[in-house]
Design a binder for these strands. Structure first.
Length: 275
DNA sequence: CATTTCACCTGGTGGC
DNA sequence: TGCCACCAGGTGAAAT
């Protein structure tokens, strides 16, 4: 479910509700998939620490942890939601959804739960002294400069859509916002990244930042089942102009939106508005 | 090295 | 109703 705007919305929600709370007990499911760090190690690391801040890095939710809210951090809990992951703040009495893989009991009496039917998500505990702070694989789309953005694609022979999805270049962009930003910039998804003119790359960066900011304002896109930390759906899906609109008329020129596959992902574009 | 393809999972939808 | 093919917000390993 989650790309940058959805992850940002969830991280903000969890931060607002759980900043300063202490993790007193941790439960993990017996599935092995979600654990980048062994469950027992994660539980050892997490129990007793205070949540200082919850923030987004790329598509990762990073919880900074320490002895006190304001003191130095000693560890980080890093949640990647994969395709179907949810991170929820609940009461302990709330029904436990199927595919719940983690439950963190907090001193305030609430719980943070990780639910992930497809099990593509990942949970990791980092000891700061050992691994250093998590910075993510690539550049941040919302703060990257025009020069840095242009440099990412120089000499690259892959499709611009595939390049946008490459997290080690830019992190946080996924299938929805790649298609939506390319439409808004008027660029075809299969264009070779390294052949785009500087003016086109400038347009793409502006379109991408605008669409991401607007999506964050609207709480992200709920295509099927995405909800934020409070269980509330986003509504940026109402603003989608091409994503999952194959065969439907372009909202600008009424030409049917085309669906193709680029880099193994469903890709949607207008053959008239995009060049 | 850069790029492409596919496996990893469950669940929903639509055709027959 | 059942069965099947296909699709879905992502990534990383393997192949090219």
């Amino acid at each position: 479910m989650p790309e940058l705007p959805e992850v940002e919305t969830i991280a903000r929600g969890v931060n607002e509700r759980l900043r300063g709370d202490c993790i007193v007990e941790v439960w993990f499911s017996s599935y092995k998939e979600p654990f980048k760090t062994a469950p027992a190690k994660q539980a050892d690391g997490l129990e007793g620490l205070v949540i200082q801040r919850v923030r987004r890095v790329g598509k990762h939710i990073v919880c900074d942890l320490g002895e006190n809210v304001d003191g130095p951090s000693s560890g980080q809990w890093i949640v990647h939601l994969g395709m179907s992951g949810r991170l929820l703040v609940t009461t302990p009495e709330a029904d436990v959804a199927p595919h719940t893989h983690a439950r963190l009991t907090l001193a305030s009496g609430r719980e943070m739960r990780f639910v992930d039917p497809r099990r593509f998500g990942r949970l990791e505990f980092r000891v700061l002294a050992k691994s250093g702070a998590f910075t993510g694989p690539g550049a941040e789309p919302l703060t990257i400069t025009a020069d840095e953005f242009a440099a990412l694609f120089r000499g690259r022979r892959l499709a611009i859509k595939a390049a946008l999805l490459n997290q080690s270049l830019l992190h946080g962009v996924g299938n929805i916002y790649a298609d939506e930003s390319l439409f808004r910039a008027g660029i075809r998804p299969k264009r070779m990244a390294g052949r785009l003119k500087r003016e086109e790359l400038d347009r793409l960066r502006m379109a991408l930042q605008q669409v991401l900011r607007q999506a964050i304002e609207q709480g992200g896109s709920s295509v099927s089942d995405y909800v934020d930390a409070n269980g509330v759906r986003g509504f940026f899906q109402l603003e989608h102009r091409v994503y999952l609109r194959g065969g439907q008329p372009c909202l600008v020129c009424a030409t049917p939106i085309r669906r193709i596959v680029v880099g193994g992902r469903g890709t949607h574009f207008c053959p008239v508005c995009q060049h």
